[in-house]
Every structure is written in C-alpha cells, then in structure tokens.
Simulated assay, not measured.
Amino acid sequence: MPKKVSSRPPIQLDIWKADGSFWKFFKEHYYLDLPHPPCAEYFVGTVDGELVCHLAVTPLFTAKAYRATRLVVMPEWQGAGVGTQFLNFVMQYHLEGNGRKGYKYHTFFHTSHPQLCGYLRNSKLWRQTSAKLHGDNKLRSMKSMQRTCKPIGGGKKMKAGYGGHFRAVQGFKYLGVGTTDSEKSIQNERKI
C-alpha cells in the first residue's frame, strides 16, 4: 500500500533590520573571517523568536548597485527554503528603494555554495553575472596590496592577500519581481 506524503507545514519567517551585533551568533557558521563590511545594513530572520538567517547589504553607489554578503542560514534550517526566501525579500526591499539613501538599485550577490548557485541560476528573479571556477594567486595579490598601501603605512610589513583558495565563486544580479529585466528574462526562458 503506497504511503501518503504530506506537504510540509508553512514556516512564518519574520525579517528584522538589525545592527551588526547579531553577527556574533552567525559568525561560526560563515566560511570567512573578515571585519564588518563598511556602511552595511544588517538583516536577520527569525522563526518563533529563534535566529534563523543573517544578511548584510552594503552600498556600491559608484556602480549604482548594492552588494549582499554574509548570508548565513543556521544549520538546522538549511534546506527548508527559508534562506532563499529571506534573500529574495531583502533584495526586493532594496530594489524598491527602501535601502540606504532610498536608491532603487539592483543588488549583486556572490556565493560558492553549489545548491544556492543552482537555485539562483534557475530562478527568474536572478541573472548570473560571473563564474570564477578557480582560486587567485595570493602572492600576487599580497604584492599588489603592499604597493597600493605603502602611502598609508602598509608597505612591506603587510602580509594580507586574497586568493590562495580554490573556491568556485559565482556572481548573480537580483532582477526583482515585476521589473522589466525579470519580465524579459521570463519571456526569454519561455522561448527556449
């Protein structure tokens, strides 16, 4: 006799604009150890008062955009779909002009998480903008930073550099709900 499969119950995710102090609860689940992003707005998602997800959004006004970073979904909530809904809500919030300075800018997001990349690549709300499938040369980055930071005290003492890892980082742009970009994307997908 076949088993009856029931759908999962709906999850009520409450989204809050917060300050950077909530990061300490999510930090151990993030793969990088970096200082707070400059000028960031922070968002947390809760279910029944339990911290579930975190995201920071920084302005990139020289590029007429925002950049989302530090998306963390607590391990016990991963795979339930709350992270993608949370990310889409915060991106739409900024696209509608609710972010810093009230600009209605698109948001860029980079990730190396394979399942998240798959979701974003196949969503009508997102468009993939880049894919770097190998790491950078950390020594070359360090030398460049030493040259660049010399006037402000970095010089030869600086040991920092980016790269040296083999993460496959992919970039995406949030198109949004009801925007011409997303409508064009939907129409193009129907043609294929």
Rank of each mutant, 00 (worst) to 15 (best):
T107C: 02
G83Q: 08
T46A: 11
L71R: 06
K156F: 06
L34C: 09
A18Y: 07
M74N: 09
C53E: 08
W77G: 01
K132L: 10
H134R: 13
S182K: 07
T46E: 13
L51P: 01
A131H: 12
V82H: 09
E50R: 10
D33C: 07
A40W: 09
K157E: 07
V90H: 03
V177F: 11
K184I: 15
V47C: 02
V5P: 00
R100F: 05
E189I: 10
L13A: 01
P9T: 05
Y31S: 12
Y93S: 00
P2Q: 08
R100Q: 15
G83N: 05
K132G: 06
R121W: 01
T179K: 09
T46H: 06
F61M: 04
M91F: 13
L51C: 01
Q187A: 14
G118E: 11
P75H: 06
G81E: 05
R100A: 04
M145T: 10
V52T: 05
R70G: 04
C39K: 15
G99T: 04
R67C: 02
R147I: 07
Q85T: 10
K124Y: 08
R70T: 07
R140H: 10
A40M: 03
M158D: 09
L32R: 15
G79E: 05
N88C: 14
D181K: 04
P59C: 01
A18T: 15
G163P: 01
A63R: 14
K159L: 13
K173T: 04
V90A: 01
K24P: 00
K173I: 14
I186G: 02
L87S: 03
H165Y: 14
G79Q: 08
N137K: 06
L60N: 11
K150G: 04
K150H: 11
G164E: 11
S185I: 03
T69D: 05
E41Q: 14
L71F: 07
L120R: 00
R127G: 05
E28P: 08
D19Q: 10
Q170E: 14
C117V: 15
F61H: 13
S6F: 14
S123G: 06
L133E: 15
T46P: 02
S21P: 03
V72Q: 00
K138S: 10
F25T: 07
F166T: 12
P9Y: 06
L60P: 01
E50H: 13
T148E: 15
G164N: 12
Y174S: 02
M74V: 06
L60T: 02
K173C: 14
E183D: 12
V82E: 08
C53H: 01
K157S: 09
A65N: 03
M145A: 08
T129P: 03
